[in-house]
């Protein structure tokens, strides 16, 4: 146990030993540094270039036909009179309803699985399935929505309605919301939970007062990602039966509807060039709507972060 002091090497030995045992080779290591920095920079710049090229072509094609008339008009057989208002309204309805359905259910399920559920075969089964569901193609969700929401639940949903569509998309993004919620909750250190329990808090009091507020920014980030996926969703909506030619705004949950991606797809698949230009205009409106939605979510997130101190 005691250290043998007399076995220490002579004074000049350490330096000699260091030189012989390590080949420091700084030049080579810094070279690798530079190579990987350049590679990472290249990867970044490639994605930026592709993205700006996409944006640029869209803007060049679409800005010419993008005007107030386009935004406030219903679709038409003539490209110069066609507008996107029906699809824009449909998308706004969809996103509002999707957020309303998916946020409480997804966050609730995430909280249950992460904070309350015991680790047994059932929760593991649920967990694996949620992971798999996130990877299921959206057309499958569309067919499910067609069978369940459009056909079976027709008395409630009104068939091919905005309600059926938003329920279908909610299902589609639920796994993303649940997984994001769990990740956000898992990132909260246990010391915070223990502090609450040690003061005589119940599980829900600990979650409600400490864990959830701390995790909320992360949960909202997940919600932003999920809604960004939902706003571009086309295949499942076509399966559910979103109409492609609608000349009225949705009046209620059971109303027929269309959405911007569907409208854009419809215009692009027409032979006339004029329709391709207004499709580009539609894409600009879609991106603007996405930006507004994400901006709102980021604003909410920052507000919660400030409240948290």
């Amino acid at each position: 146990m005691e250290r043998n002091i007399s076995s220490r090497p002579p004074e000049n030995a350490p330096k000699a030993a260091r030189e012989s045992n390590f080949a420091v080779n700084l030049n080579r290591r810094y070279m690798m540094d530079r190579i990987f920095k350049a590679a990472a920079w290249g990867a970044t710049i490639i994605s930026v270039i592709i993205l700006s090229w996409l944006l640029l072509t869209i803007l060049m094609d679409g800005l010419g036909t993008l005007n107030w008339n386009f935004i406030t008009s219903f679709p038409s057989r003539k490209a110069e009179r066609a507008g996107i208002i029906a699809a824009l309204a449909g998308t706004v309805w969809l996103m509002g309803l999707v957020a309303l359905f998916a946020f409480p259910i997804g966050v609730g399920a995430g909280i249950y699985l992460e904070e309350f559920a015991e680790d047994n075969w059932f929760t593991q089964f649920v967990e694996i399935n949620i992971g798999n569901l996130a990877g299921v193609p959206s057309i499958i969700y569309g067919l499910l929505g067609l069978a369940v929401f459009v056909r079976i639940m027709e008395p409630i949903t009104g068939g091919r309605s905005v309600l059926s569509g938003s329920l279908t998309i909610s299902l589609l993004i639920l796994p993303i919301v649940i997984v994001a919620t769990r990740e956000a909750l898992r990132a909260i250190p246990d010391s915070l939970r223990l502090a609450g329990y040690a003061l005589g808090a119940t599980r829900w009091q600990v979650v409600r007062s400490h864990v959830l507020p701390a995790a909320l920014p992360g949960i909202l980030t997940g919600m932003i990602l999920a809604l960004s996926r939902a706003i571009g969703e086309t295949a499942s909506l076509i399966a559910v039966g979103a109409a492609v030619f609608i000349s009225f705004l949705p009046e209620g949950l059971n109303s027929q509807f269309t959405a911007m991606p569907i409208q854009i797809y419809n215009w692009i698949s027409r032979p006339q060039d004029e329709f391709h230009y207004i499709a580009a205009s539609g894409i600009i409106v879609l991106m603007a709507a996405l930006l507004v939605m994400n901006g709102l979510a980021i604003y909410l997130r920052n507000r919660f972060q400030q409240e948290k101190l």
Binding site: S191, L192, G196, A198
Partner: peptide, 13 residues
């Protein structure tokens, strides 16, 4: 009551 190894005040006032 309990006091922990690492100070763990709530992220509140």
């Amino acid at each position: 009551g309990m006091v922990f190894q690492k100070p763990n005040p709530f992220p509140k006032s």
